[in-house]
Amino acid sequence: MDLLLARGYDVVSIDLNPPHTECTAVGIVCDLADREALDRNMAAIFAGGPYAVVILNAGISATGRFEKMPVEAYRKLMKVNAEAPMVLASALANAGALKGHLCFVSSLSHFTGYPGAAVYAASKDALAVYAKSIRKPFAKRGIAVTVAYPGPLRTEHAARHAPPGADAARRRDPALAARTMLDAVLAGKRVAFSDPRARTVAVAGGLLPGVMARAMRRVIFEKLDRDVW
């Protein structure tokens, strides 16, 4: 968001929290896990348009042993990560409130599998394939669809869900990743990786899915010492 504001865009944010006070973005406060709230806010979201760029980035996770976490956490995760962005994309396109670029933020787990975050992985796979599916029909409406696949980033989200002992210094700077991905979105690319390493991991996952899934089990699932949702 800071990057878009710095580049002179007028920004509308849809978030659980309003933008911080010195920020000039227009805030629409909406819990994306609340279907009625999203439906209620849709008119306000359309009114902020027509948009040249829409980035559907909101996401939450649940890491740990699949059967140990409450199913309510999975319900919320599916709504925020997959359902809400799909509903928003479809509604914005149908209302003509978006002419330009549409970006879904999926995850590198689309290529690797993600034992220890099975429902998160499912939600991000769903999002990636929804984006692939709508690319052609949306192109006819003047909307270019990009899927972003960020690798590990130095965010609060990652710190909360990473296994103990994980080296935060090896995660990428989110501001840098945002710039790389935004440039790919504005160039109309079909996919946007956060950094060259993420692209390499994606290629490896495509070639050797079983090996990558097992590696993910070793470096993540077997090291998780707690269930976090």
């Binding site: 993600y114 429902v119 499912a122 939600s123 769903a126």
Partner: peptide, 12 residues
């Protein structure tokens, strides 16, 4: 999404 669920759970 089902495919992603299966890939993760089969490892877990």
């Amino acid at each position: 999404g089902l495919d992603g669920l299966a890939r993760a759970l089969s490892e877990e």
